[in-house]
């Protein structure tokens, strides 16, 4: 009897061991396979585009405009248009987003309506970009622009799709991202430092501007860079708002200051956009197969831009966490 008992107990031990080890191994292998599949997919897409795109990639491709009915030339105007729109977007979205975040996190965090505002911003983040694009067209161009033209007697200056409206609409699209990353950055500033500043006789705004914001700056910059990479990769919002298939000239106006002539980006003009340019090459040209290498090249430039921006964001985040490790003393 004792013998059987001992055998049974060994059996239990082995069974338990098998149960634990088998499911554990299964889970680990499953996770491993899934990660490999994901990474392979990513590498396949990027590699495929890189191999095909490298053939056309050159300085000439980056700087020159499309030629010969899109079958030759480069993407210079599209890059220029993308940069101008994104710059204008930063100009609108960053102050709005950062100050909104400061208001939410520093002034009304304990009020009942702060939750309503936060939920609204979450909802805004979930609105499809095409809807935001249509809203931009309906609100800014048709309503605001047309009425402004009528009011100021400017003919057709504001009431048409233009870079100004495109960048504001993109700004609305990235606003939640900027607000949430800024709130996170503000939250990570230790409460001790706020107390220290207030205890030394700082007003609330002095505390925010002299202690909280300098510490949160790398985190906020991370958010701005991420929002730029989001804006660069979007197509839908600019679709209705002045994004052009092809423009013979850059959206630039020369401003005359006496003897100086300064070329300035003209926000009332139409523009070309990188992501839309891929769409245009693929669907709008007379012979899409001929433009195929150019499509790969454009896609490669777009992906490289976004990867570079994200690397910058990671570097800033790294610096941010480093500072706080020191502050917290570990």
């Amino acid at each position: 009897m004792e013998f059987f008992k001992s055998i049974y107990s060994w059996y239990r031990v082995l069974k338990d061991y098998r149960r634990i080890s088998v499911t554990n191994d299964l889970a680990i292998n499953f996770i491993r396979i899934m990660s490999i599949v994901t990474i392979t997919l990513l590498l396949a897409i990027v590699g495929f585009i890189a191999v095909n795109g490298m053939q056309v990639l050159s300085w000439d491709f980056i700087f020159s405009p499309p030629k010969n009915n899109f079958t030759e030339g480069g993407i210079g105007p599209a890059i220029f248009g993308t940069i101008s729109v994104v710059l204008l977007m930063i100009f609108f979205a960053v102050p709005l987003g950062v100050f909104a975040a400061i208001y939410i996190n520093e002034y009304i965090f304990d009020k009942w309506y702060s939750r309503i505002i936060t939920v609204s911003i979450h909802t805004l983040a979930g609105v499809p970009s095409i809807v935001i694009g249509l809203f931009g067209f309906g609100f800014f161009v048709l309503f605001l622009g047309r009425n402004l033209d009528e009011l100021l007697n400017t003919g057709l200056l504001f009431g048409k799709p233009a870079m100004l409206w495109a960048s504001i609409t993109l700004g609305i699209l990235v606003l939640p991202l900027i607000i949430f990353t800024t709130i996170e950055a503000l939250k990570s500033v230790p409460e001790d430092h706020r107390n220290a500043a207030l205890g030394l006789g700082a007003t609330k705004w002095e505390m925010i501007s002299k202690v909280v914001l300098p510490q949160a700056r790398p985190g906020i910059l991370t958010g701005i860079i991420l929002s730029i990479s989001k804006a660069v990769s979007e197509t839908a919002p600019v679709l209705f708002l002045g994004c052009a298939f092809f423009l013979p000239e850059l959206p630039v106006t020369n401003l005359n200051f006496g003897a100086f002539v300064i070329p300035m980006i003209n926000p009332s003009e139409q523009f070309m956009y990188l992501s839309y340019h891929i769409f245009a090459l693929a669907t709008q040209s007379t012979n899409p197969t001929v433009t195929l290498p150019l499509q790969y090249g454009t896609a490669l430039v777009l992906i490289l831009t976004i990867v570079l921006l994200n690397i910058f964001a990671i570097l800033f985040r790294y610096k941010f966490t480093k500072t706080f490790e020191k502050v917290r003393g570990y």
Binding site: D192, N195, G201, P214
Partner: peptide, 29 residues
């Protein structure tokens, strides 16, 4: 709060230079 100064349990210096930390209150004033 200028008349009544406070020192906390955990030192809470700002991540600035030594000089800027001490000069914080005079500059505010």
């Amino acid at each position: 709060r200028n008349t009544v100064g406070m020192v906390f349990q955990k030192s809470n210096l700002f991540p600035k230079t030594i000089f800027d930390n001490v000069a914080f209150a005079p500059r505010l004033q």
